[in-house]
Each structure stands twice: as structure tokens, then as C-alpha cells.
Simulated scan of single mutants.
Amino acid sequence: MHVQPKIVVIGGSWGGVKASLQLLEDLPANYSLPVVLVLHRLRNQEGQLQELFDLKLRLKAVEIEDKDILQSGYLYLAPPNYHVLLENDQSFALDDSELENYSRPAIDVTFKSAADVYGDQVIGIVLSGASEDGSSGLNYIFGKGGTVIVQEPREAEIETMPLAAIKATPGCRVMRLTEIKAFLQSLHVN
């Protein structure tokens, strides 16, 4: 039986902005899934990322606010200095607890909470980055039956994050950005 995904969660760090723009640039404005993007960012980088994504994409880019409800056709950006959690009512919760993997937002936190809420209906994607954040979260999604994809390390600007994710989850799909992009497009239901 093929499970219809409900959410796409993407994590990246160094090189992640460029990679995610490339990944999402051709998705239609009415894309049938919500996309949540957790990028490691400087603590004072308010708003700039949202403007960049809004300019380049058809998806509506918004910086997540506490209690926002997930909707398809949106790209949700983790705000600086907050962990992003998903709740059972399909809303977001922002959390300013301790750094995880030297990061807040931490990719692992979002990946794990998405898997707890959506189980095998989550698609988790790890992109370029210089830390190991995302690897245990990706493995957690895999354990719940979700689809896990890692950017081909040789193509990543910094291969540390993809390599850590592949090591943590040997069952993941390793794909080039063009392949991930085609996969995401194939999920769109008109």
C-alpha cells in the first residue's frame, strides 16, 4: 500500500539555502503539501530569509509563529533562536529551550516531532551542512516508516551533514537535488 504523505520537512545548514531554493523553485503555488524548512541561521537574521524565498518561489514563504496552523502551498521557515515542534492539531509550537547540536532551531527536534505527529506520512530531507544535526531525526522518521532522503554528499556544498545522515540511516535514499526536486513534484496532486 502506498501512503499519501502529509508533510515535507527539510533540514540544512551551510549550503542549505542555495540547495533548498533549487529544490523548491518549480513547485506550484497550490502545492498539495506543506513544506517545513529548518535552516541553521544566525540569531539576528530576522526576516531576510523569508523575503529571499518569497521572491524566488511560487510557494508562500512564511516565518513560523507559535500556533500557526499547517497549510498546503506554504513554505514554513523556522525562525532564528527557536526550536520548531509540530502538535497533534497540525499547529506549530515554538520552543526556546537549550541548544541541540549547538543549534536552535535544531533540525532533529523538528524531524522527531513531525514523525510523532505524522508517522509514515512524513518525508524528511537532509541537505548540505557542516554539523551532524538532522541525522538522528532522519533516523527517527525512518523508524516511524516515513520517507527519508539525503542530498548526494558529493554534490553538497558541505558534505558533513549528508554523510552523518547516511551513516545514521543506511536505508535512506541518496539523491541529487534534481532527483529530489522531481520526486517532490511527483507528489503534487491537482
Rank of each mutant, 00 (worst) to 15 (best):
M1E: 11
H2A: 15
V3N: 09
V8T: 03
V8G: 01
V9Q: 07
I10H: 01
G16H: 01
A19K: 00
S20D: 00
Q22H: 06
L24Y: 01
N30L: 09
P34V: 07
V36A: 06
L37V: 10
V38G: 01
V38L: 11
E46N: 12
E46R: 13
L49V: 04
E51L: 15
L52W: 07
L57C: 12
R58T: 14
V62K: 03
E63L: 12
E63Q: 05
I64G: 04
K67E: 14
L75Q: 00
L75E: 06
Y76M: 10
Y76S: 07
L77Y: 01
Y82K: 04
V84Q: 03
V84N: 00
L85P: 04
L85N: 04
L86T: 15
L86S: 11
E87P: 05
F92N: 07
A93S: 07
D96T: 14
S97R: 06
S103V: 12
R104P: 02
R104W: 10
D108Y: 06
V109E: 04
F111C: 04
F111R: 02
S113N: 04
D116K: 03
V117G: 05
V117T: 05
V117D: 07
Y118M: 09
Y118F: 10
G129K: 05
G129W: 05
G129M: 05
A130C: 09
S131A: 06
S131F: 10
S131D: 06
E132D: 14
S135A: 14
S136E: 13
S136D: 09
G137V: 07
L138V: 13
L138M: 05
Y140R: 07
V148N: 03
I149S: 03
I149E: 03
P153A: 02
P153F: 00
R154C: 12
I158Y: 09
P162M: 04
A164S: 12
A165S: 04
I166Q: 06
C172Y: 08
R173W: 13
L177D: 05
I180M: 08
F183V: 09
F183E: 12
F183L: 13
S186C: 01
H188A: 04
V189Y: 03
